[in-house]
Write a protein that binds this DNA or RNA. Structure first.
Lengths: 130, 130
DNA sequence: AGAATACATTCATGAAAGCGAATATGGATA
DNA sequence: TATCCATATTCGCTTTCATGAATGTATTCT
């Protein structure tokens, strides 16, 4: 039965994407990078996780082709390879009753700006404190 | 840091959806139901899996609110509670280089038709054989 | 009522993934 | 060259999840 096989193979490939996105940590990373660019220390500061932990998830996302990295000096900047993933995240959120505005509000909007994390640019740190 | 907490909570909820869809079996089930309606024996015949295995995944999808079931005699018919999930699956496929047509071709198109599986309507069985 | 059929649920196990600790690499500065 | 800092990788443990086996429940038919 060919149609049978097709649907299984197709489903497998589709599930791979969802598998990648099934981790809260990776979703948070993708939103924090958003339409911009971020070094690891930025994510470290914003999300409050250890560097090694972030690097593991970044490696996963990079190997899967969702992220691309760019080295500049001793910093490595990550950005989305395809911003369509943000649309996918938004649609998933809607399915769960979350409005697109809520997602957008937490998505980094800057298209490919330099990282402004507390390490890279300490003057921005104060803004994060309530 | 409020924004920090928000993004973690939001990411958690979004990841839940992806977690649900990270199983090839569940993707195949959703596509096979598609815009129509299917009883368990239909899925059993089309996908070639044992009944208990299907029932487990159906339970997961039902409890998560993605599927709704309707009893008619001793048959239980499943349908999508919100067809938006098909759009989500299609978008995930596109991210992985699969064209929407390829997905559509394997998505049951009939809106809420009665199940026509080999058990429920044996005359259709012949059509499945190449 | 009893048997048969369609479906649901529970339980156990094995594989995979999350996550922490430790360590390695690679560029920059002195 | 030596050292520091940003980032990457490996290892190991724990937990989670997928899957199979067995069993339970609801409905129809005789």
């Amino acid at each position: 039965m060919k149609a049978n096989m097709d649907i299984l193979i197709l489903s497998e490939r589709i599930a791979q994407i969802f598998q990648l996105l099934s981790s809260p940590a990776r979703i948070a990373i993708l939103l924090t990078i958003g339409r911009g660019e971020a070094c690891v220390c930025h994510l470290e500061a914003v999300l409050g996780w250890r560097q090694a932990y972030l690097s593991q998830h970044l490696m996963t996302l990079r190997k899967a082709g969702l992220l691309q990295d760019r080295r500049e000096g001793r910093y490595v900047y990550y950005r989305l390879r395809d911003e369509a993933v943000l649309a996918l995240v938004g649609q998933a959120a809607e399915l769960n009753g979350i409005t697109p505005q809520n997602v957008d509000a937490l998505t980094n909007p800057n298209p490919h700006t330099r990282c402004e994390c507390p390490h890279c640019a300490p003057q921005f740190t104060a803004l994060l404190q309530p």
